[in-house]
Simulated assay, not measured.
Amino acid sequence: MKLLRSPKAYVWAGGLFIIAGILVFATISSTDETMASVDGDKIKKDELYDALVAVHGTDTLNKLIDDKLIKLEADKEGINITDAEIQKEMDILAETSGGEKALMQKLEASGVSIAALKKELVVHLQTKKLIEPRSTVTDDEINTYFKENQNSFAQGEQVEASHILVENEKTAKKVAKKIAKGGVFTKLAAEYSTDTGTAKKGGSLGYFSKGDMVKEFEDVAFELDIDQVSDPVKSKYGYHIIKVTGKKEAKKANFEDSKKEVKAELLSEKSKEVYSKWLAEVKEKHEITNKLEGTK
């Protein structure tokens, strides 16, 4: 997991946070009528419910209907989602959120539990398995897309590095001293690094380009020689000790090297189009009642 990667958004993630306001009702007993009070003036559960529905109700209910349809179709096609698949998506989401700790903070701030997140991931994976087989990309489309977007597939200079992330300067200096005395970087990463996703891999971040990491980190990483270890580097995540393990020079875009990535991008775009059409067709096959938008 690359803790420092610039955050990206899953397309499906918005749906998870839309329903966060409504999820509060899952923990409220039906007998809890008073939710708050100001100088004895009570705010009733129904008042809170009406306010939440007014803001989130239509989007939330439509999403829940879509999720129900997706589950029904996935069951019909014998699609199963494994724990390993869910964990893989969790790892990706943690990476795009700035690390596991950042993800947990984001979930907590939004009032979303891990269980709710995993439930959303199941829907995401079911949708992916339902839609991707219905999406096709031709060789001509791949060739055309590459020619029109060739510059975006050029590879800038890259660095392969590992890091040990700690919370404070005192610990960073302690670890740096151990490395200077011959301590094994990978073992110290496993022992001290708070980036749990990379600690178990000896701190490895793999290869990255400029712009992938926070500036303080990459400014140092791109200046180090192979096998050189940095002094502690401060960023918003804490203090890093960086070791560069490899370098790649910049190179122009190459069709054969980029073909797989081009296909993936085209497939993603087509899947969105196919999904909308597929969902509309599925809705025609089911009797759906939506009291916020009338009855079909």
Score class of each variant (00 low, 15 high):
residue 32 D to Y: 05
residue 30 S to C: 05
residue 172 A to F: 05
residue 22 I to A: 07
residue 95 E to M: 12
residue 11 V to F: 14
residue 276 S to D: 15
residue 67 D to K: 07
residue 71 K to D: 15
residue 296 K to P: 13
residue 10 Y to W: 13
residue 280 A to V: 11
residue 203 G to I: 01
residue 25 F to G: 14
residue 180 A to H: 01
residue 289 T to P: 09
residue 162 S to I: 07
residue 238 G to I: 07
residue 95 E to L: 07
residue 180 A to C: 00
residue 251 K to E: 14
residue 268 S to C: 09
residue 165 L to N: 00
residue 96 T to F: 14
residue 104 M to C: 01
residue 3 L to S: 09
residue 14 G to D: 02
residue 20 A to G: 15
residue 68 K to V: 03
residue 168 N to L: 06
residue 42 K to P: 15
residue 139 D to A: 14
residue 44 K to S: 13
residue 166 V to Q: 08
residue 143 N to F: 11
residue 231 D to W: 07
residue 292 L to W: 01
residue 161 A to N: 12
residue 92 I to G: 09
residue 71 K to Y: 13
residue 173 K to V: 02
residue 231 D to M: 13
residue 147 K to C: 02
residue 26 A to V: 15
residue 277 K to M: 06
residue 257 D to Y: 05
residue 183 G to M: 09
residue 103 L to C: 01
residue 49 Y to L: 15
residue 58 T to V: 15
residue 285 K to H: 07
residue 218 E to Y: 10
residue 220 V to G: 04
residue 295 T to S: 04
residue 195 D to N: 03
residue 198 T to A: 10
residue 204 S to E: 12
residue 188 L to C: 08
residue 55 V to H: 06
residue 133 P to E: 08
residue 7 P to Q: 00
residue 108 E to G: 05
residue 229 V to T: 14
residue 234 K to V: 00
residue 167 E to R: 03
residue 248 K to I: 05
residue 104 M to E: 15
residue 252 K to S: 12
residue 266 L to V: 02
residue 77 E to T: 03
residue 212 D to G: 00
residue 138 T to M: 04
residue 219 D to A: 03
residue 147 K to H: 12
residue 183 G to P: 10
residue 31 T to R: 15
residue 66 D to W: 01
residue 19 I to G: 10
residue 31 T to C: 05
residue 73 E to A: 09
residue 192 Y to T: 00
residue 271 S to N: 01
residue 275 Y to V: 01
residue 213 M to K: 05
residue 214 V to F: 12
residue 114 I to H: 12
residue 240 H to C: 12
residue 197 G to D: 15
residue 229 V to I: 14
residue 66 D to H: 03
residue 187 K to T: 03
residue 199 A to R: 07
residue 31 T to H: 15
residue 12 W to S: 04
residue 53 V to M: 11
residue 293 E to K: 12
residue 106 K to W: 04
residue 19 I to K: 04
residue 168 N to K: 05
residue 36 A to F: 14
residue 135 S to Q: 02
residue 257 D to L: 08
residue 148 E to P: 09
residue 114 I to Y: 13
residue 88 K to N: 13
residue 67 D to P: 00
residue 140 D to R: 10
residue 267 L to W: 07
residue 215 K to L: 08
residue 172 A to Q: 01
residue 49 Y to F: 15
residue 42 K to N: 08
residue 23 L to Q: 10
residue 164 I to R: 00
residue 176 A to F: 08
residue 68 K to E: 15
residue 87 Q to G: 07
residue 13 A to N: 10
residue 290 N to L: 11
residue 234 K to E: 14
residue 8 K to Y: 13
residue 5 R to K: 14
residue 75 D to F: 09
residue 274 V to Q: 04
residue 278 W to I: 04
residue 131 I to R: 00
residue 124 H to T: 12
residue 258 S to V: 05
residue 192 Y to L: 03
residue 97 S to L: 12
residue 27 T to G: 14
